[in-house]
Amino acid sequence: METTEQIRERILASLPGAQVSLVTNPGLAAQHSLLLGAAHALQAALLLRDDAALRLDFCSNVTGVDWPEREVSEADPTAPGGKVKRVVPGFLEVVYHLYSVALGHGPLVVRMRTANRSDQVTLPSLTPVWRSCEFQEREVFDLFGVVFAGHPDLRRILMWDEFKDHPMRKDYVEPDDFEWEPTPHGDVLERARRHYPAPARPAKEPAP
């Protein structure tokens, strides 16, 4: 398969004006990825699928990643040797792993990012391109809260419909009745007590 950089060139050649950038992976596996801008993502995906040299017809894995807002300190460009703190805004990311069944190559990693984590969380759905995204995008919607525009049936998939939050987000707070069975750990027991002021069966403790 062509390198990720070459694939980027190829997309830009057919879709001038598309936002495609390379995200390098510092890890040992060196699976670099392409970051697609939401505006042209659908056309770019179609191109990846139908281009005769790529034919990435099999979208194996779709998943979300939550990147909350964080503070980084980096070298100050104005004062040499100095450090400045900069706040990197948080965003949600959807990662697609593409393979080609026809040509037997892959993976190509494609990512899309939302503008923030609260109100601008809409991304184009790639289900029209690869059917395998259907359930997996529903899962990303359910667990991360990314809204996929153009998805045929965007409902919660693992959590129940009335559930409010998105459990895979890093700042998700689990309800305090999450594990009320007293385990040997006191903190779980404490939490359970707060939730159940008068437990039916006080564990290993005399009744008040």
Partner: peptide, 24 residues
């Protein structure tokens, strides 16, 4: 504590492709 980075790796399980995507 693996070096920062990510990997997707898959094998042919009896039911199909079972893969793990890890970000460190």
């Amino acid at each position: 504590r693996p070096k920062a980075g990510e990997v997707y790796s898959r094998i042919e399980g009896p039911k199909g492709e079972i893969g793990f995507f890890l970000i460190s």
